[in-house]
């Protein structure tokens, strides 16, 4: 499989009044043609920041891509000029934002917003655009699409707004779709429909997907590989089956345990004890060590590097590495 996207050693920092936040640190991964890679992990672990950095959408200041290389179809994204970048955004690479207001302008009708993407990247004429907008809304399951096209974002329910963003992202049949929490506001039936639509674009055009989601059910159903992040770093990677059946990093193990709601009827849900460390006050050594049941003294001394514990299975945990060797 040839890689559509290759990210190496990406680092993003934010400067704040209290100090620097290393939101993303040394992140590397690749996505092949037609492949779906899921990015999962703690809230605040840097998933959205990484996704925004791929399109150079980090506001500078306060943010900065401090290091790394991003290759998309062999082109170096960080070296592109602004106008080249604009052409890539929304065209070859599309993004579904976690924050609806990154994508939707409150004073334009839905028709106009999706129409603009079509005009810009597909060079469609006015009438063709109007028809295509309605067709796209229908494909993402918006009822009465012709009427909805004439409305404004605030006239829509949360889930409809999200579907409008999905329609907008898919409008130009991108080569790479970055989807940041694309289904949080969708009910399960619409979600299934949207996931099927994404699947059909993958089958037909070899679209690759970087999927960010907290919904492990969606991950299990759609992703080929999973990358787990914690406090700005990748701590584990594997195929979806490997991650679900044989998680090696204690954070991943805790996350999967916490997801087993069905089994804890009535009682309290399983949590990972403790809280995520403050970005200004990172523990020495492994960032997970204050919450880790398996921690050894050395975990509090040095940061565990990512080491392959099996082919294609990098894990950043001393204990997991020892067990494997």
């Amino acid at each position: 499989m040839s890689a559509v996207l290759e990210v190496a050693d990406l680092a993003v920092r934010f400067r704040t009044t209290r100090g620097t936040v290393n939101a993303v640190d040394g992140l590397s991964f690749a996505i092949g043609e037609g492949e779906t890679v899921a990015l999962v992990g703690e809230s605040g672990s840097g998933k959205s920041t990484a996704a925004l950095a791929l399109l150079r959408l980090i506001a500078d200041p306060p943010g900065r891509i401090a290091a790394g290389r991003i290759l998309f179809e062999g082109r170096d994204i960080l070296a592109l000029r602004e106008e080249e970048l604009r052409e890539v955004r929304g065209g070859r690479i599309a993004m579904i934002f976690q924050d609806p207001m990154m994508a939707l302008n409150p004073v334009y009708t839905i028709e106009r917003q999706i129409g603009e993407v079509l005009a810009l990247h597909a060079g469609m004429g006015r009438e063709a655009r109007a028809k295509e907008v309605v067709e796209l809304l229908r494909l993402v399951g918006v009822p009465a699409p012709a009427e909805r096209a004439k409305q404004y974002p605030h006239n829509l329910s949360g889930g409809m707004r999200q579907r409008v963003m999905i329609a907008m992202a898919l409008a130009c049949k991108p080569k790479l779709l970055i989807a940041d929490e694309p289904t949080t506001a969708l009910d399960v039936t619409v979600q299934a429909q949207v996931l099927d639509l994404i699947q059909s674009l993958k089958d037909r055009f070899g679209m690759a997907v970087l999927l960010i989601t907290h919904d492990l059910g969606v991950v299990a159903e759609t992703a080929h590989r999973v990358i787990v992040m914690y406090a700005g770093r990748k701590v584990e990677e594997g195929t979806t089956a490997q991650i679900f059946k044989d998680p090696r990093h204690p954070y991943t193990q805790g996350l999967l345990e916490a997801a087993k709601w069905e089994e804890v009827e009535g009682a309290m849900l399983r949590e990972i004890p403790g809280a995520v460390p403050s970005p200004f006050d990172m523990p020495k050594g492994c960032a997970f060590s204050p919450r880790c049941g398996a921690a050894l003294p050395r975990c509090r001394e040095s940061v565990p590097p990512l080491v392959e514990v099996a082919p294609g299975r990098p894990v950043a945990c001393f204990v997991a590495q020892e067990r494997a060797s």
Binding site: P143, A144, V188, T189, A192, G217, A220, E221, F244
Partner: peptide, 29 residues
């Protein structure tokens, strides 16, 4: 509605049967 919920288990999700509703959601207008 309840038949369509995804499950966080790659094996189970391959086995499940959903009731797929035919037809579009009618307009609330």
């Amino acid at each position: 509605l309840f038949s369509a919920a995804p499950v966080a288990d790659p094996d189970a999700s391959a086995r499940r049967t959903r009731i797929i509703l035919a037809g579009d959601v009618p307009s609330p207008v």
